[in-house]
Design a protein around this nucleic acid. Structure first.
Lengths: 221, 221
DNA sequence: GCTATTTTTCTTACATGTATAGAAACTTAA
DNA sequence: TTAAGTTTCTATACATGTAAGAAAAATAGC
């Protein structure tokens, strides 16, 4: 842990842990035992330090999770072959981001980030914005289009992940199930008729369909 | 608080607090002092009970917040005049839901709900699904279309609310600002050229534009 | 070498959500 | 009247994130 040569230059007590240590250990805990086991105390013990020492390297636990998300993106988000048609490029880039994030359940707590900001993810943002421009949108509308895609993508992941978590935690039927069980067919005829198929229909993965619709709509002008 | 007449029928110790008491008091605390001040201890004290007594009426704090959200929807989500054209109906119904939710910042913590499920909100869901069918979609595709709209709407609110919260908490420039400050123009030319306008562009409210694009795309087949 | 300064770490303490165990207050049946 | 059963409430305890400030370990100036 100590560096014998190369006299230090900065004053102050030398750090015994680094942000990289923290992220690396946190990643190990999360991948081995799940995000629920990642506590500041546990992390500190694993590193051989104290909980409050961590707070000199990360602002709070949320920042730690964001760093973890960037780290995860950096090592899992590989650049795919993008198709030649710009419209398809948008779809493929968005799907790539979506699939990597959706495979990572603990992400929910931080996915409300403004944008994806790891340098790995930025390449995808670039591809999306650039392809939208190539399709004829102004740069401004291309940025807005990318944002709409991001809203849709983040929303899909968040809503589905939360629903899955609630289903896993509950043995009883959901609140939603109870509400749908006794809909008034006069007040809400369409929903009443669909009630018994609602769970099945909303369980289907229609991310790609919605994405294509959104992209088509964005480019329709 | 005591009911003199009408002999009780249920065995067991009579309840001193009700779910309605809890929700009502919680609503008062949240509207008067903000969601951050709503703690189980504070709520219990305000009601004149103990924290753990609340747990016989709500499963946990998350359920309390969900109940609070439904309560809020019930009293704020009024049915608007819907236009005659079904496509416009979809847009107007979605915007109505969006605007009510977006005006309610504390909602973020529970907005990852599967769907909106208050009876007030269900009317809007009915309108959206029914209008999509009237536009020619099958009922199945209409449900999927509604879900896409919900993903987009929830995502927009969550992402924007979280971004606003982070901006409010931070005096320093955001992580995003720092990343955008030194983009490599060779690697990410489009983003580099837009860098200094990114904050401004993403701050614009383009919910309606994105919604119209999505609806157009959903109906384009 | 001694002191001041700076940076990191450690100690202690608090607020919060909630699990657990059991007491209290009812109704019903014997 | 008492015993059993049921529901609600209370007391206590624990894990967690993190604020506040003391302590430690380095450099810089004298």
């Amino acid at each position: 842990m100590s560096h014998s040569s190369a006299p230090r230059k900065t004053p102050g007590r030398p750090a015994r842990i680094s942000r990289e240590d923290i992220i690396g250990t946190a990643r190990r805990i999360v991948t081995e035992e799940g995000a629920a086991r990642l506590t500041m105390r546990r992390l500190a013990k694993e590193i051989g330090s104290t909980p409050m020492a961590l707070y000199h390297h990360v602002r709070d636990k949320e920042e730690l999770l964001l760093l973890l998300l960037n780290d995860y993106a950096e090592r899992t988000l590989h650049r795919p072959e993008l198709p030649g048609q710009p419209r398809e490029r948008v779809v493929v880039a968005a799907v790539a981001i979506h699939d990597v994030l959706a495979a990572c359940p603990w992400i929910v707590e931080v996915l409300t980030a403004d944008d994806l900001m790891s340098t790995a993810a930025l390449w995808f943002v670039e591809q999306i914005v650039d392809s939208l421009v190539e399709c004829g949108l102004t740069p401004e509308r291309a940025v807005h289009g990318y944002r709409a895609i991001w809203y849709y993508t983040a929303g899909e992941i968040l809503v589905r992940a939360t629903a899955a978590r609630r289903r896993a935690a509950d043995d009883q039927p959901t609140y939603r199930d109870r509400v749908f069980a006794d809909l008034d067919p006069d007040e809400l005829p369409r929903l009443a008729r669909l009630a018994d198929r609602w769970a099945e229909l909303t369980a289907e993965d229609t991310y790609l369909d919605g994405l294509r619709a959104l992209v088509d709509g964005l480019l329709a002008n």
